[in-house]
């Protein structure tokens, strides 16, 4: 005789979302909790995008910089290295230079960078703004137009700029990443607004605002679990979208990631520590429901891929 393990009866499923052009990627589609493949389907295992930046990073720990030292001054070369050497299947271009509190790049520069990368690589491309709603609205709008036909994912789209970016995404057929600050109701609200604006349901992904291990990941973790439960158990169709986590930039600014070994020998080798902080952040986010992770270190990515394949069985 065996024990009867209670199964969860799911009534909803996550939408499948594709983006890219010549080379497309599909995410989502799960009809059970993450990696609960014993009672449901996960037709598209979670994906990993590798990030490249518009300018050479100034504040990265050595461990994160080392793999890209020879390419950091050119996002096209950087993306090329990610694809050829590290097998990246998606690239995320982070336009940090747009930030008015930082380099304050003119929008035209960002558009030029995005267009160059979009032309140079064949894999699906995510274009991410600087987090300033106004500047991002202008830049992402222009990028949507310039990259028509490329099937981008653009983000972060917020409640303050969704109508401008959303309209451009509709017109030029890109996917939007709707970002809200770690709150299930706000996430739902923004998805409703995007829907009302006319963004088709197969072109929205949720960015719950990822935190890193040690810096509030528990909030992201629980909000993601709740979003998944609402979508799968209560058929809340305004939450039944894939989830994207722009996580690497959070991980590598964690205080303990940057501490040299001499300063605190108990923390171990800084390279291995940083890689592990990134991979473990990924591991927790994956188990909370992430469909797409934006990651940085090639070794952290390699380990995360292996973990995903092990969890899929």
């Amino acid at each position: 005789m065996g024990v009867e393990i209670p199964k969860t009866s799911y009534s909803g499923a996550i939408r499948q979302i594709s983006f890219g052009s010549a080379n497309k990627v599909t995410m989502g589609g799960a009809n059970s909790f993450p990696f609960h493949v014993f009672e449901g389907e996960m037709p598209n295992p979670p994906r990993i995008a590798m990030e490249v930046y518009d300018h050479p990073p100034e504040d990265w720990p050595e461990a994160a910089l080392a793999p890209f030292k020879d390419v950091v001054d050119d996002p096209v070369k950087w993306a090329g290295k990610c694809i050829e050497e590290y097998g990246a299947e998606i690239i995320c271009l982070q336009l940090k230079g747009l930030d008015p509190n930082g380099k304050d790049d003119p929008v035209e520069d960002a558009v030029a960078t995005a267009s160059r990368v979009a032309e140079a690589v064949e894999v699906p491309l995510i274009v991410w703004g600087c987090g300033n709603d106004e500047k991002d609205a202008e830049a992402l709008k222009a990028i949507c137009e310039a990259c028509e036909g490329r099937g981008l994912m653009v983000g972060p789209v917020t409640e303050n700029n969704y109508s401008r970016v959303g309209a451009a995404a509709i017109a030029y057929q890109h996917v939007v990443a709707a970002m809200t600050p770690i709150d299930i109701n706000l996430a739902k609200q923004l998805n409703i607004l995007l829907g009302n604006l006319g963004v088709p349901d197969d072109r929205i992904v949720i960015d719950p605002n990822s935190a890193a291990l040690g810096y509030g990941i528990e909030y992201t973790y629980s909000v993601m679990e709740r979003i998944r439960m609402a979508a799968l158990l209560q058929e809340d169709e305004r939450l039944a979208f894939p989830i994207i986590c722009n996580m690497a930039r959070e991980v590598w600014k964690v205080k303990e990631v940057g501490i040299p070994q001499q300063e605190d020998p108990k923390l171990g080798d800084p390279e291995e520590r940083g890689i592990m902080m990134e991979a473990m952040t990924a591991s927790l986010l994956l188990n909370a429901g992430a469909d797409l992770l934006i990651m940085r270190h090639p070794e952290a990515i390699k380990r995360t891929r292996k973990l995903i394949s092990d969890m899929m069985g």
């Binding site: 040690g214 923390l267 520590r273």
Partner: peptide, 20 residues
């Protein structure tokens, strides 16, 4: 016990077991 592995694991545990 590899410190570079143990530290992230312990921090993750602290996070997950925090009272929400």
């Amino acid at each position: 016990l590899e410190p570079a592995h143990l530290f992230p694991l312990l921090v993750g545990r602290l996070n997950i077991y925090t009272d929400p």
